[in-house]
Amino acid sequence: MIVRLATDTPYLLDPENWTDSAVTSIPELIGTHLLYTALALVIAAAIAIPVGLFIGHTGRLAFVAINAGNVGRSLPTLGLISFLVVLIGGGLFPALIALVILAIPPILTSTYAGLRAVDPAAVDAARGMGMRELQTVFTVEVPMALPLMMSGLRNAALQVVATATVAAYVGLGGLGRLLVDGLALNQYDRVVAGAVLVAALAILIDLLAELLQRVVVSPGVSGRAVTRRARVAHPSPLTEVSSGTAA
């Protein structure tokens, strides 16, 4: 590693740090960081969503979903990683497992809460129309629970993207490198670069999630249909009756 002398150009704005072909170049670090984040989120969602759906739909084991949130908030991720490294050795796994464990509670809790909040009349209607259990879950409960589920996913994404920096402490890549190396080298502009980039990434991910939410959540549930109602002149009850009896 080259020890740099303090220059006038801050680390973040130095073109060399962006174009460098080394693994420590900024685009490279961002890519790795996003990869960790995405991997952790996908794995966490693959575990937490089915479990949350099961608990929310059946109402069984509800204490798991409720307590998961509290446990998740109180676990120190760095401590967890160190423990896992001791337990299973270095590499990607300890960091990934820690991030997955961090992401599960918000997704699990919000999936459960989302399903619990579904109007029981709609579920009753679904059964009454002749939907089978899984059809009820996926075509009625999930679409109605989506706003809450999405907010859980967003929370998880933000936490993971910020916490993925710890990967650097166990010798892995990602934007945490800038923090760890910057601190080690007393290069505070490098530390600042790391912090700024993580924050920017978090904002970007949140914006994308917001867009995704708009696409996947039905306007009938998100409330966007209601604001549209104000613009459409809806008939008064009187015209309704006359149009009805005339038909």
Partner: peptide, 8 residues
């Protein structure tokens, strides 16, 4: 009370 599906 109708019990319509709000998302549809």
């Amino acid at each position: 009370h109708a019990g319509l599906f709000p998302h549809r």
